[in-house]
Each structure stands twice: as C-alpha cells, then as structure tokens.
Design a protein around this nucleic acid. Structure first.
Lengths: 131, 131
DNA sequence: GTGGCTGCAAAATGTTTGCACGGAT
DNA sequence: ATCCGTGCAAACATTTTGCAGCCAC
C-alpha cells in the first residue's frame, strides 16, 4: 500500500512536533483546526496512527483516563502520569532492556517484545494549585 | 460515608476471586448475570471501584485497548499485555521500589507515588493459534 | 486515471451519571 | 426511619468506520 503525502498529514506532524508536552488526539485536533478549521477529527486520528506506525512520532498508551497521548520524541523512554489531571510528563530514565531479560524466564508462554514503565504521581502544576 | 454489605457487592467480589485470569468489568458482569440476570452493569462497575478502593481486589489500569482489568491478587505486581487479543497475564517480577528511588531525582516537580511496569508481547493462546 | 486520503456523520466501545425506588443499617 | 446501593436508561468520552467525492501520484 503506497503512502501519500497530504497537507493534513504534514499539519498533524507539525502540530505534534511543536506541542509543548504530550498532546492527546483532541489536543492535536484543536491546534490544527484553529488555523485550518476544515480538517476533520477522523483525519487527525488516522494520521496520528500512521505517523506513530512509521516511527516519526511516539505514542503513549492510554493509562488511567483512557486517553492516548502522542510524543514528539519517537524513541522509547519513561513517562509520568498525573493521577490528578491526567497529564503525561517525561521521566528521563532510559529504556531498560535488562528488565525484559529479567522477566523473560519467568513468564509462561508469554512472548515479551517490550515493556512500558509508567510512574504515577502528582505533576508540578497540580501540586502548585493545592497551595 | 458508611458502607453497606449488599448481595451484589458479595457477588462481584466472588466473581473476581474465582475468575481465572484478569477479568474486565464486562467479564465480571457476564459471570454474575449468568446466575443472577437482574444485576445491573452499572452496579458491577460501582462495586469493582469500591472493592479496589478498599484494597480487596487489584486493578490493572487500561492499556492499549482502553479496558480496565481487575485482579484477585491485590498486592502490586507486574503484568503482561497481549497486543493481539488484549488479554492481561501475570508476570512474576516483584514490585521494585528501587525504580522509584532511581527516578525521583530526575523528575522536575513531578511527585512520584508508585510505578506500573507493563510488558507487551503475545500471549500463549495467540501464539498457539498462529500455528 | 487510479485508489489512497478526506470530511462528515453515525456507530462502536467502555464507563459514568441522574433519578426514583427498595433494602441494609 | 434513614440514606446508601440498585436498576434502568441516557449521557459521556474517546476512537473507529462506512461512504461518496477528491486529490496526490
């Protein structure tokens, strides 16, 4: 299946790359539609899936509130999930392949391909709001 | 707020405890309604939330397909998520507090309370189906 | 010109909520 | 007698999908 370069795909990519943080699909949609009001949300969803499949952007699986977030960093790293507001932040702990090695012998028939390490906590903004 | 012991809550607890694996809310509902067809799905959702809040059952946050799973083991441990069928399995790697210690100094204002380690891969059943 | 991409709306999915009633305390 | 928990349906939130037309190749 041949892939085409469309204006909508370029806009989606640009929106993720310039977003400060980890936008949800809806965040990306809102950014783009502010300038290009005719874009469809379905198109944004489709392009986010394509871009992360191509490895051009990162994808942070839904956690807690069931919202998928995207990431201008494509390489694997850890994330923090704020249990208060659902915000996703970077945790600069490098991807640890040793964990897969440690876990592999103990699983029963489950073939591990990768792992995801998520830290739960309260983000800076929510903590400042509490005072 | 005082808590009452209802038949529905007992049934929800029993269904989770006797379920082989990690049932979703809908799995639990189907088990119970087979015997007690008048139970409401909303009640199952509410009781699962109560039970996990009380620490009597475990909760495995939604991952991948956005479905929350429950666990008869209440103590923290790791899970495997099958990217093919969405099944959740146990990975017997004990909760590693050292990770929180390692990560804490590097976050910026994010107060870590715990972490969740999820292994992605293909479960036994899906691999057997492929052959 | 072909067929992948788009916009739109509707559907699917998983979960939550408003409300009146019934049952546990 | 309280008032929390229940059942029901509707609302909700996020994401996916069917379809006709369009546009990149």
């Amino acid at each position: 299946m041949e892939r085409r370069n469309t204006m909508q795909k370029a806009l989606t990519y640009e929106a993720v790359m310039s977003y400060p943080g980890h936008p949800s699909a809806d965040d990306v949609y809102r950014v783009i539609s502010a300038e290009h009001s005719s874009i469809s949300k379905a198109t944004v969803y489709r392009n986010l899936a394509l871009l992360s499949e191509e490895g051009r952007i990162g994808k942070v699986e839904s956690f807690g509130n069931g919202e998928v977030h995207y990431d201008h960093r494509a390489e694997k790293h850890c994330h923090g999930y704020c249990t208060k507001c659902g915000r996703v932040v970077d945790i600069d702990l490098s991807y640890d392949n040793e964990l897969v090695v440690k876990a592999s012998p103990m699983e029963d028939g489950f073939a591990i391909t990768s792992h995801e390490l998520i830290f739960e906590g309260i983000c800076k903004e929510c903590r400042e709001k509490e005072n």
